[in-house]
Simulated scan of single mutants.
Amino acid sequence: MAAHQFRGPSDLHLHSERSDGTQTPAEVMRSAHEHGVRTAALTDHDTTDGWAEAATAATSLGMTFLPGMEMSARYHGRSVHVLAYLIDPDDAPLRAEVTRVRSSRLDRARTMADRIARDYDLSWPDILAHTRDGATVGRPHIADALVAKGHVRDRTEAFSGILNPRGDYYVALYAPDPVTAVRLVVGAGGVPIVAHPAGRAGVLPDDVLRRMLDAGLAGFELAHRENRAEGVRTLRRLVDERALIVTGSSDYHGAGKPNLPGENTTSDDMVQRIIDTASGTAPIYS
């Protein structure tokens, strides 16, 4: 057991305005605390920029802060998200790949904005108005601009309509394949967990999952509101076979999604396994 102690409940998947959430990292920690969370991870998309602010806020509230990131990956056009816990943020290979993904996000957002502007009143400054300086620009920021312009009611309508991947305005994002993403996280001393692995797109093919596991994948986020029961049952069998880590999280985005901190949590023993497995960085204890 580690010398330092954390307390549950633990929510290990929260987003701030440094990616596609609507609150500052400090506000995210305060919201988590208000909902009873006592150990929290900030997992913004492809960035660790909010760690310092979140850690200061969390520890001031008597919480444990567990640094994380949600890394983008793609498999045959499908988006796969790998939660990367306790990575070394200065690891050169990981930083290089994340920088490439972030650059792709920016180019993609500009291209999508140009396409949408042909049919809707929308400009690049409109989108930037909903994006914090240095944030990972993405479709949620375009969605927020569309809402502000009155073209859609909310992000959900934007994603199902104008920003739908099957629509004319959509542009694919560059991201590494999931096996490479797992290797990069492990190489940075982190613990990789697949986020919402049984969502609408279904579970990844068994051979891909096994290659990810052979590369060092530590487990799955099985308690998540987007997961489907059938897919969770399939993954449970793999968890039992390989003695994997299982997490539960809210995927909180502030006003960007209805998800609330602590609506799903990770058991203390699984949090401890993540801490004990990692070598990249350490939790920040109060």
Results as ranks from 00 to 15, higher is better:
P165Q: 03
V186M: 11
H196L: 02
G189A: 07
S160C: 01
I193V: 15
A172H: 10
A218D: 05
A117L: 02
R183M: 13
A135N: 09
R132Y: 00
P192F: 03
H151I: 15
V179S: 09
V147F: 08
D144F: 10
R139L: 14
V182P: 03
Y120K: 11
G150K: 07
R118G: 03
I127F: 02
G138P: 07
L122H: 02
V182Q: 05
R183P: 03
R210E: 15
A181S: 12
P140N: 10
D207N: 14
L184K: 03
I193D: 05
R132A: 14
I142D: 02
L128T: 13
P178V: 09
A143I: 03
H130W: 07
D177G: 15
G216P: 01
L209S: 03
L184T: 09
F220E: 06
L163P: 06
A143R: 06
D114Y: 04
I193K: 07
T156K: 15
F220T: 01
D119N: 04
A223N: 13
V147A: 02
I193F: 09
A145V: 02
A201S: 14
D206M: 03
G167M: 07
S160A: 15
A198T: 03
V186D: 06
N164H: 15
A195M: 08
R210W: 08
L128P: 10
H196F: 02
V152K: 12
P125M: 00
V185Q: 13
R183F: 06
V191A: 12
